[in-house]
């Protein structure tokens, strides 16, 4: 059965939305966990970023899968929205909702705004278009806590922040074919410099809170659409949604808050 046929049915459109949603939620959870490494310090955080970049083709496979999932998620959402607008041509003059919540009634709006936020976030931290100065920051590091030999003949510990390894010195290292000193993207510095700007932080607060709104309805909705329920676990499944989305929001916005307060990255 082709995708086109699937999207004809409202239930199967929702299944497409739910399954792509599972991938997107899994990504958000992974992203949140990865971001928490910032609290372990610069070394761990940058090593993690470097590890992700080193995945190469696998990273691109993940990116393409997520991109396709996002596109399908949006197509299915638009499809259901059009169908639903047609099924209620005349609205009530007086309307009182009993169970429908603000989060469930604004899914399309929160979804669109999260999409806009995602575009900004990619331009900011992944592609480096909006703040190129903060983006192109690098650090020199040595794997395995190595020591390098300076041109003067002295031995210096290279991966310490105060070892004063300059570009000039590094060039000399490279010319001496010392492979122990390497250069990598200083993601830690990039994040700290980015969030030191209160306007950028505000933008992330809003984006993440909207994401939380979206997920609050989305996660339990996903279980409902895929038919995952049982009288024994109903309550548990419904509560899982606000709990998980709240944890994600708190973790994510804690980073700009800590940076603005100078608790994280203050020594930079």
């Amino acid at each position: 059965m082709s995708l086109f046929n699937w999207l004809k049915s409202s239930i199967l459109s929702k299944v497409v939305m739910a399954l792509t949603g599972v991938l997107l939620v899994a990504f958000v959870c992974g992203h949140t966990l990865g971001n928490m490494l910032i609290y372990l310090g610069k070394e761990e955080f940058n090593a993690y970023a470097q590890f992700l970049q080193s995945l190469g083709e696998i990273l691109w496979l993940i990116r393409i899968t997520l991109f396709l999932a996002l596109i399908l998620h949006i197509i299915a959402a638009i499809r259901v929205k059009f169908l639903n607008m047609a099924s209620k041509p005349v609205k009530y003059q007086v309307r009182r909702y009993v169970k429908a919540k603000l989060t469930s009634r604004t899914m399309l709006w929160t979804g669109s705004m999260v999409l806009a936020f995602l575009a900004y976030h990619l331009l900011h931290f992944t592609i480096g278009v909006t703040n190129p100065k903060d983006f192109h920051v690098y650090e020199y590091y040595a794997p395995h806590n190595a020591y390098g030999v300076l041109p003067s003949g002295a031995i210096a510990k290279i991966n310490e922040p105060n070892s004063k390894i300059t570009q000039n010195l590094l060039d000399q290292f490279e010319s001496q074919a010392s492979k122990q000193v390497m250069k990598r993207h200083d993601v830690y510095k990039m994040v700290v410099l980015g969030f030191k700007n209160p306007w950028i932080s505000l933008c992330y607060f809003i984006g993440v809170i909207l994401l939380g709104f979206h997920l609050n309805h989305a996660i339990q909705s996903m279980f409902q659409t895929l038919g995952i329920n049982h009288p024994k676990y109903d309550k548990c499944l419904r509560n899982f949604s606000p709990v998980l989305s709240t944890i994600i929001v708190i973790c994510m916005i804690s980073i700009p808050i800590n940076i603005l307060l100078g608790l994280t990255g203050g020594a930079l």
Partner: peptide, 18 residues
């Protein structure tokens, strides 16, 4: 149900409430 022009569920749960 779809031929009759009914919409799709977006899990508002208003139906259960009324």
């Amino acid at each position: 149900m779809e031929k009759e022009g009914f919409g799709g569920c977006t899990n508002f749960y208003e139906c259960e409430a009324v």
